[in-house]
Each structure stands twice: as C-alpha cells, then as structure tokens.
C-alpha cells in the first residue's frame, strides 16, 4: 500500500430533483480491497458509475491514479475493469467470441488473443464453456463471464458492483477466492455488496453510504472501533445456563441479552472493574463458567450502529 489510487473529492450527483450522491469524499490506496456498503438506493451504483467515468458528476470530481474523471475519462477507462450490477452480454454469440470482441476493442496485441482469453477463462473457471452460446449460460456463469471481461486487459483497478448478487453459496465462495487472489496480486478492488459477512473475509477498507451521504470511510479496524460505547460479552457455562441468564438479566448495564446454546451473549455498559465484578458474582453463585470474554464487533455490527446514528 502507499500511493492513492482513487481520490474522491466532494462528488455529487443529482437526477432531476433526486440527490443520489451528496458531497462524498474519501481516498482509496493502491492495493486496498475497498468495500462499498449501504442499503438499496444509498448511491453505491451511481458512485461506482461516476468513478468509472461513465456518468458525469453534477459537482465535485474524482481522480483515478491521478486522472480526473471529468477531464481525462478515456485514460480512466483504460485503467479499470468494471463489473456492473447487470450482465451486459451479447446473448447470440459464443463465450469466446464475446471476449474476443472486447480483446480487440481494448486494442490488445492481436497475436496473443487466444492465449489471453483462455487465461482469463481459466481464471474464472469457464474454460470448458468457451464454445457455448452465452444465452445457454447459467446466472453464475454469466457473472463469471462478466468478470472475465473485466479482467481481460489486466486493469490496475477493479470496480465490482454487487458481484455476488444472485450467486449460489458455492459460486459466491469461488468469487471470494478469486477476489482474494487478485488482491494478493496487488490489484486495487472496490466492491459493493449487501453480504457484509463475506466482505469481511477479504476487504481491508470499507465505506458506508446512506441516502447518498458518506457516513463512514476507513479501515475495517476503524469501522469496528465505531461500535457503540460499551462492549459485547460472551459467557459459556458447563451447565446452568438458565440460572446464569436470569442472574445477568438483573445486573445493571446488561442489554440485548440472548442465549446461543450454552452461551449467553450481551452488551455491557460497565467498565473493567464492573466486568470483573460480574464474573466474580457468577462464579460465586456456583455457575461453572468455562469462557468469559469480549466478542469482536463485526462489520455488520458497525454498519448497523453507524446507520442508526446517521438516521
């Protein structure tokens, strides 16, 4: 990491009277895997289309590897691979021909077309389907083909809008592995998704949007630190979980108490002394505690908390 790949500077976009993206600013470093999250209509797709220099901002600008999206859109296009939230496929031609069309359109060296196309098809696991007509492909395969197209010219930056949408769990896992592999190769990746748990496995940074406004942008660690005051605790007992739950219910500072098998998970507003006191009380009551500790906040927790704050 080091140099800035994406600089977003007070970007704003209106559609008639609707404000889709409202003065959004953040930076993405080279090599980062940047998750863009937010509810439907938050402005994720509009933001991505502006960053891809496909949609002109109403105000503000962004620079991709130093190229201004308003002034140098064609240079921006050459740097990025874009996977939109729709397939965008020519249904009546075979997979190989689809990629050959884009290979030629990207002005890549003519003699190497077959090798490069086979390479990306193998990368996304579609090599054995190269001769098939696109209209016969399944949803997952179509998404993979779109991915192959985005990778064809070996771009430095990948903008992926909902890449896992509509994929079955197996295909999602393959997609995740592919993204992790690309991240290891040093690609900068910006990915929008609703499936936050999956993003956590390979993303390094996250931006959260709500109703066009940026409510958070930073590393995953920073996002976790934005969890509400207090801590989330987990207690596991060898037996007597009911007794433990009823004791916890009466304790001051305990909220959102839930039972998960032989575990009790809850938010606790007390400080370290109060936490130690809680453990002492439970052990003193004869409850056989075998685990007592803090649960790390997930990106989902941060998202929920930040969304709540923003509204």
């Amino acid at each position: 990491m080091g140099a800035v790949m994406i600089e977003v500077d007070a970007l704003r976009r209106e559609f008639g009277d609707t404000l889709a993206v409202d003065d959004v600013s953040f930076n993405v470093e080279e090599g980062a895997v940047f998750a863009l999250v937010g509810p439907n209509g938050a402005g994720k797709t509009t933001l991505m289309r502006m960053l891809a220099a496909l949609l002109e901002p109403s105000l503000g600008t962004a620079r991709i590897s130093g190229f201004d999206i308003r002034e140098r859109p064609r240079e921006v296009h050459s740097l990025l691979g874009f996977l939109p939230d729709f397939y965008g496929l020519y249904e009546d031609i075979p997979v190989y021909e689809y990629l050959r069309f884009f290979y030629l359109a990207y002005r890549l060296p003519g003699g190497l077309a077959s090798r490069r196309i086979e390479e990306v098809l193998a990368q996304v696991g579609l090599l054995e389907h190269a001769g098939k007509d696109i209209e016969t492909l399944s949803r997952g395969m179509r998404q993979k083909l779109g991915f192959a197209r985005a990778l064809l010219h070996d771009p430095k930056l990948l903008l992926l809008d909902e890449p896992a949408a509509g994929l079955d769990p197996g295909a999602r896992q393959e997609m995740q592995a592919l993204l992790a592999g690309l991240a290891l190769k040093g690609k900068t990746i910006m990915v929008s998704s609703h499936i936050l748990a999956e993003l956590e496995d390979y993303c390094t940074h996250v931006a959260m949007l709500d109703r066009g406004r940026l409510i958070f942008a930073g590393s995953l660690a920073e996002a976790r630190r934005r969890l509400p005051a207090g801590r989330r605790l987990r207690i596991r007992v060898a037996s007597g979980i009911e007794t433990a739950l009823s004791m916890l219910e009466t304790m001051e500072g305990v909220s959102h108490l839930e039972r998960r098998s032989t575990d009790a998970v809850f938010d606790f507003a007390g400080d370290d002394t109060a936490t130690a006191g809680m453990l002492k009380a439970l052990v003193g009551a004869g409850i056989p505690v075998i685990f007592f500790g803090e649960v790390a906040g997930t990106i989902q927790d941060s998202y929920v908390a930040l969304m709540k704050d923003s509204r």
Partner: peptide, 8 residues
C-alpha cells in the same frame, strides 16, 4: 456502457 469503457 461496456463498449464505452473500451478505447474505441
């Protein structure tokens, strides 16, 4: 949009 992204 995908054609627009190419250098054509």
């Amino acid at each position: 949009d995908l054609q627009r992204l190419t250098p054509l």
